[in-house]
Every structure is written in C-alpha cells, then in structure tokens.
Write a protein that binds this DNA or RNA. Structure first.
Lengths: 213, 213
DNA sequence: TAGATTGTTAATCGATTAACAATC
DNA sequence: TAGATTGTTAATCGATTAACAATC
C-alpha cells in the first residue's frame, strides 16, 4: 500500500479518526470552533481546518462546525457511514476477544465470518458465528456479501500464507495483528497492529523522560 | 507525551522497531548493506543510515552492518535489551489474550501482575498469575519490582479513571487499548492501540484504490 | 590498491503553522 | 453592522533524499 493516494496523506486520515473519537463525546447539536477542538486534542486550529478542507467545506464562518454534521461528514469521508463486513481469520484467544468486544460489535462493523485451520475448532461456534475451515475462504468470498476487511489474528508463521490466500480470494484490505511485514500487491490496503512494537516504542520514550522534562 | 524528545522524532523510533522485525528473520552472522535492507522494507538506504546515525556508528564502511550486532544495538537503543516488567489492567477477553500470547510472553517483556475490579475474577488465576483487585495497584507498585509498562484493557468508560490511578501510583508508561484519548501529565509516555480507528483508516484506503492504481 | 558502503552535509520535498481575505 | 471564525494562501519548519568525502 502506498503512503499516499489522491494527494491525501495517511497522517490526515489518522487525524480524521481522532476527530471522530473526540466529537463522539460532545453534544451533537452544539457548535464547536476549530480553536476549541484543537485545544481539546492538542492539535492546532489551522491543522484541523486544513485537514477538513481537503474534502470540502463543513463549517459555518463566524460560528464553527456543528458537531452532529461534522461527525457524519467525517464518517462519510472515511466510508464508515455504511455497514462494513468483516471476516476474522484465526479463532484463537485474540480472534475470540475481537469477536466478543462489545465496543466493537455495536459499531458499524459487522463480523460475517470466522475461519480457522484447526479441526477441533472448525464447526464449533464463537459468539454465535460458525467457525469455518480457512480452505473455504475462496468459496465464501464468491457466494457471500462483499467482504470489506479481513482481520488476521493467526500465528506469525502462517500469516504471510494466509494473507496471500486472502488476496487471491479477492480481499482488498487486511488488518494484520501478526508481527511481520506482509508482502501484498500494491493495490491491497494493509494496516498493522503490532503490540510488541508499541511496547518497544513505549520503552524508548519512558527512558527519555528522565533526562528531559 | 510530546511527539519528540532529545531531538529524536517518533517516526524514527517507529522505524527502529520495523528494522528489528526485518532483521530477526535474517542470518545473524551475515552482513547487510543499507541498500539491501532498504529494498527489503520499502524504505530508502539514506533513511536507514540517517536513522541509525542519530545514535552512533553501527556499520563498517565498504561492508555494511552485521545483522547480529545491529539487532542488539537497536535493542539497546530502544531499551528492550533488559527484561521489562508489565502489569495488565483488565482481565477480560483482551487482557486474557495478551497474557496468553506465546509470541508475547517469550519476548523480553514479563507480565508480573494482572488486575481487575470484578469480584468474580479477583482471586482467580489467569495463566498462573493471580488476578488482584485494582485497589491494590498503589500497594503493589510500592512493594514489587519496578513496573515498566501498564497495559490498559479495561472498558472505555473506566479507562481514564484507571489511567489516573496508575499515574498517581507512579506508572511512567501506558499502552492503552481503550478507544479514548487519555489525559495524563506530559512526562507520562502513552501509546494507543485503537482497533476501530485502524478499521476506519483501512476503509478509507480501500475505497481509494479503485480510482487510483 | 580498487571497490564498496558508510556517515554526514546539502538540497529537496512535504507537512504544519501563521496570516488574512471571505463570509456567516 | 460588528464580531467571529472559516477556508485558503504564503511562510516556516521538519523530514526525507541525494550526493559525496571518509574509510573499511
């Protein structure tokens, strides 16, 4: 995946998700200025206005942004205003935690399939969803509703193999929890969540504090 | 937490963790040039050399970097060469998944405590570690080995409260899985893992592919 | 020594911020 | 209308890349 497409950098998109997080705690009918929003989030007002201006005009001069409409405008920009179908590959503890997350399932993302390669798991249920054989993935993708995202929670050693299988079956975007850099064609969107890398980063910053603040 | 300390940007630290990920799959005694490494990771050779030059000289001119020594040098830069003690706050499914991750426990991070606020969980064990009452956190931090990182896997609505408790008890760095922006003093290091935000980002990039590649 | 590749300086590129005219 | 705040242009800042002297 490229760092940039259509002139929008990944930094901008990352911030949009943060704006949503902040807006969801505010009263929908109120108005907020870029200045106030910036203060809440530790950004600058100019940056917020610039980010939004990439996609259109969402504010009212002299008044600010209505929280409700700004929220739904950002949702529309990100494409999360419609329900998104998800499959989870790997019915281990992490996969199970994701499928069960109440925070997660109530949102606009909908888990429509869970896959594993273990005979003891295949055929059983996880939160009411049947666990299928990973071999069925190609068939599943042909016959079912469109799959928007595949979440990979398989062990590191099979992650690349599964990613390749997913891409061949037609999946266009992958959220990868395995601590490896997946090799996929350029047109496939991949996001990584690497717990261990985050811990390493934390470790670095923690050490710095002593000498600096 | 600031974006930068001691002149090193968070981008550099992020890449260092990626270098580690790449190096761990290569033969330790071999040498690799910045050019070869760059090719493997999709960075530029100049960037790799520049990143490393922030911390010293690790290569041999005309030859490249020895994989084994570069790996341990980066570990030392990040501070992960020594064992790091972790506590997990929230013994739910996600907390359980983390405690059990084989990939995770074998690394240099060591879980020394698990805490929850539910009476039905307190006193039971999770992978051989006793689940303690969150109220015991201040006492635990005084009496036990130093805690390097606290991982927060509690529900969104109590995350801020727990973060405040942790900071007051003396925790210096937090890995937060709750989808909110924690408010903590400037000298506390925080990293967020926000699954839902990642899905939103993916969703955006997925839509762009069609118009672009 | 000749060839290769580092570490580092200078040039480029992109992202953030400041400033302000447009306008609610 | 006067005050406020947007959307946008220009200025600044920082990060990436290119180039090359140093040196293995």
């Amino acid at each position: 995946m490229k760092e940039k497409r259509n002139g929008i950098s990944s930094r901008v998109i990352e911030r949009l998700t943060k704006y949503l997080r902040c807006l969801e705690n505010l009263s929908p009918e109120d108005y907020i200025s870029s200045e106030e929003l910036a203060l809440k989030m530790g950004f600058t007002a100019a940056q917020i206005r610039k980010d939004l201006s990439n996609f259109g005009e969402f504010g009212i001069r002299g008044k600010g942004y209505q929280i409700r409409t700004l929220y739904s405008d950002i949702e529309r920009i990100l494409g999360v205003h419609k329900t998104n179908n998800i499959i989870v590959i790997g019915a281990g503890r992490l996969g199970g935690a994701l499928v069960s997350e109440p925070e997660f399932t109530k949102e606009s993302f909908n888990i429509i399939g869970v896959f594993d390669n273990s005979d003891t798991k295949i055929g059983t249920e996880m939160k009411g969803i049947k666990i299928r054989d990973v071999k069925e993935i190609p068939y599943f993708l042909q016959s079912k509703d469109k799959v928007d995202v595949a979440i990979l929670t398989v062990p590191k050693k099979v992650a690349q193999q599964m990613a390749t299988l997913l891409v061949e079956a037609g999946v266009k975007s992958i959220l990868n929890f395995a601590p490896i850099n997946l090799e996929v064609p350029d047109h496939i969107a991949v996001q990584n969540i690497d717990l261990y890398a985050k811990l390493q980063e934390l470790n670095y910053w923690k050490e710095q504090v002593i000498n600096n603040d």
